[in-house]
Design a protein around this nucleic acid. Structure first.
Lengths: 243, 243
DNA sequence: TATGTTTATATGTATGTACATATATTTGCC
DNA sequence: GGCAAATATATGTACATACATATAAACATA
């Protein structure tokens, strides 16, 4: 891990500092609540001014990644997924940014005939196979979310991709498909037998259920996603401002 | 419109500047694309340093309200049209828009000492009573949501209001308090005994739980709201576009 | 006229400095 | 011991200053 700032680089110091901070706060000790070094010392260690360091800190604070408290210190904010953060739509990137290690418990890739809902959203017939991706993910202690995704054939996924990489990185870098609009529906449900088994809870336990419709820049459908979150493992935060 | 900064005030200068900027950019000429005065001049006019002015500007830029361009200037970002701002925050109006008749099953108004969470959000002590509003609402066939709201004393509610009227109409028309920002946290929960009784479900049944923090135009807290929704009775929809 | 060069302008980056203030800890008095 | 006062610590606020750089307009040259 690069822990130094290159004063000869043409990358602005505060951007280097920001990048550096994003890295160091992934360290488990910080994710668990340890305070960062204080600003004055840290600035000295990085050989930049406190003002410059604060430029970087401000950005992370604004994103909700860090919490500062006068007289106390600065630490990593408690995990919760925020809809407005930089890593738009990406579950694993967001978790990584907060220093939460993500474990993939299961990963299945199959080609299936879409059901009515999927075919309808994709505007294709139920006769044309689509790629289905199922993932069981969570923390080392146990899974807390079960995802099911369907992808529009137009995207061009083969099923041979490395789905351990962030999904939206694969789509953007390898397939030049950029997710641009998402419509989500969030509700509570009782866990059915199948989901209860996957998430290791009793059938009937409360589940946060999220349906997500994702569109590309031309507002064409690219992904249909279902997420089943174990209760209390996941909080959805929304910030909305009047006009 | 206040166009000056009060150096004797105990409100930090950058916050005053921020508030001031929020006001002046509402001027139609800026909304239509005119550039703001340049930073150096504006700072001079407000009698604050450029650094302090930039603190305020940064915040609005982060929020996406302003666009800065090196060598060019700063202007108001193009307005994003949000369809959901219409019936913003109002449960009854939203339900009515969907053609769902609403019945009020219970309505309790009490003055209580706030708990830690409420006092903390309102920035008051737990010794100062606040107005608590509890409502059990739903369709004619039965209740499906239980609301608990706390109001900041600043608002001036007496408890004698007619809470069968839409809440935000009461606040706006009678008390000139305009809700401007809301932060929400949505999660799934198992119904406790109390909530289960109210919503007429078995204890342990899944509940969609929503916590809502509401702020006025000056970003001062005005309402703390908890909502417990019977599963399958309520779907939360969100539409988000990249950038 | 067409095109490259300079210049004016506004934001971007970076530092050093000083004091204010919230919080927790330590000290000292009764 | 109990409680108030002092102190240590970390972030918060604010200023003056200097130079870098992107952009557009003015200017100069072939």
């Amino acid at each position: 891990m690069k822990l130094r700032i290159d004063h000869k680089s043409h990358v602005p110091l505060h951007l280097q500092a920001e990048e550096l901070l994003r890295n160091i706060i992934r360290d488990p000790q910080y994710a668990e609540g340890k305070f960062l070094p204080n600003e004055v010392d840290l600035a000295k260690e990085l050989a930049i001014s406190r003002t410059t360091l604060r430029q970087a800190l401000n950005k992370l604070v604004y994103e909700g990644l860090l919490i500062r408290k006068k007289g106390i210190g600065t630490k990593v904010a408690e995990a919760s997924v925020s809809s407005k953060s930089k890593n738009w739509l990406s579950f694993s990137q967001e978790m990584q940014a907060r220093g939460i290690p993500i474990k993939n418990f299961e990963l299945h890739v199959t080609w299936v005939y879409p059901d009515e809902a999927v075919a309808n959203f994709f505007e294709i017939t139920t006769q044309k196979k689509v790629l289905k991706l199922e993932r069981l993910r969570g923390r080392p202690e146990g899974p807390f979310v079960y995802f099911v995704s369907f992808f529009h054939p137009r995207v061009g996924l083969t099923g041979e991709e490395d789905f351990k990489r962030p999904l939206y990185e694969i789509l953007e870098k390898d397939y030049r498909v950029v997710a641009n609009l998402s419509k989500e529906e969030i509700s509570a449900k009782a866990a059915g037998k199948f989901i209860a088994g996957k998430l290791e809870v009793e059938p009937g336990s409360p589940i946060l259920f999220r349906k997500r419709y994702v569109y590309d820049q031309g507002d064409r459908p690219i992904e249909y996603n279902l997420g089943y979150y174990k209760a209390d493992s996941f909080v959805y935060t929304i910030e909305s401002r009047r006009e």
